[in-house]
């Protein structure tokens, strides 16, 4: 037995080194190129995700060790936190109005531009510019002035004898100024729509008009169905972004979500809980609930997509 093992060992070793060296040659370059991403993925994404899931069941103020408190954070969210309810209301209102309106504008302008207009590159660039600048602090500062009591909007309204309110500091309107800011940035979905419109074969329209279909019918029967994959893509991207909107609300409300919580976006509330009040455990629970909301929305979109998204195959 001992002899057998001794005889077999070198063979096994030789066999396994070649096997290992072959495996090394086949897989190592891939993993070496992937290494920076892998380190980041594990160290900055997976690790923190697990930690934040754990923290969401604790009381943690950054200075003393986290205390396990079970599901108390989640219970507080749903039963005993008016600000959370306000943040949910504000964020859902924002998503529900800003995303569809932004996409409608983007599609309308894209269709106008797709008529083979002269000066298309210039128009496209002009409409895209706000998208590029919109997320910056400078634009949020500008918005504060435009919708202030003596701002641009009220000056315009005064031409018609209308005395407008101070839109920013009135809780009935403040969220709408942010929705308008979001719609103003319709440029990037517009460009994606333009790319999609160009994929629709021109002879389909020609065939339809031979059959006597008017423009309106062509839009509902050809353009929109063939464009649904692009609509689907734009809607998902824009909704996920809208759920996480932060900078404009922070600048316009001085970081408070005022007046009367009317601009308390979810991401802003989470930031304040974590980095102003150092309730890191509670903020982690908020973050995981946000992930849950986004995951539900995405899953729902994909599940229902087969009923309304048209894939040609």
């Amino acid at each position: 037995m001992a002899v057998n093992a001794a005889e077999a060992a070198p063979q096994n070793a030789a066999f396994s080194t070649t096997k290992w060296s072959r495996a090394w040659q086949n897989h190592a370059p891939g993993y070496l190129f992937l290494l920076p991403w892998l380190i980041g993925f594990i160290g900055l994404t997976v690790g923190p995700m697990i930690t934040s899931l754990y923290l969401s069941f604790t009381d943690f103020d950054l200075l003393t060790p986290a205390q396990w408190i079970g599901t108390a954070n989640y219970e507080r969210m749903f039963t005993n936190d008016r600000n959370f309810a306000a943040a949910m209301r504000v964020t859902f209102t924002f998503v529900l109005f800003s995303v569809p309106l932004k996409l409608a504008f983007a599609l309308a302008i894209a269709m106008l531009l797709n008529r083979g207009m002269k000066g298309l590159p210039l128009y496209r660039a002009l409409f895209y510019l706000p998208s590029l600048l919109g997320a910056s602090v400078a634009i949020a500062i500008l918005w504060r002035q435009i919708f202030a009591g003596d701002g641009l909007v009220n000056q315009f309204l005064s031409i018609f004898g209308i005395v407008g309110p101070s839109w920013i500091s009135n809780p009935n309107y403040s969220l709408w100024t942010l929705i308008i800011l979001s719609i103003w940035q319709f440029g990037s979905p517009m460009i994606i729509f333009l790319a999609g419109l160009r994929q629709i074969p021109q002879d389909m329209y020609e065939a339809a008009s031979l059959d006597g279909a008017g423009k309106w019918r062509q839009f509902w029967k050809i353009t929109l169905p063939l464009l649904t994959p692009v609509v689907f893509f734009n809607a998902i991207i824009q909704t996920i972004n809208a759920f996480q909107s932060f900078t404009p609300a922070f600048i316009i409300s001085n970081g408070t979500g005022s007046p009367i919580n009317s601009t308390l976006f979810y991401a802003l509330y989470l930031y304040n809980e974590a980095f102003s009040f150092f309730r890191m455990g509670y903020a982690s629970a908020l973050a995981w609930f946000l992930l849950f909301l986004i995951a539900c929305f995405t899953a729902f979109s994909f599940l229902t997509s087969k009923y309304w998204v048209h894939y040609d195959d």
């Binding site: 086949n26 370059p29 891939g30 995700m49 991401a267 982690s284 973050a287 992930l291 986004i294």
Partner: peptide
Amino acid sequence: LEFKFKNFWFAMMMMTLMLPGQVTIIP
């Protein structure tokens, strides 16, 4: 390049595209 679990890692990479940054920022 070809390597083991490539499709798995690719799927993971695509999932991080949709991950809200709030979930990882505190840790």
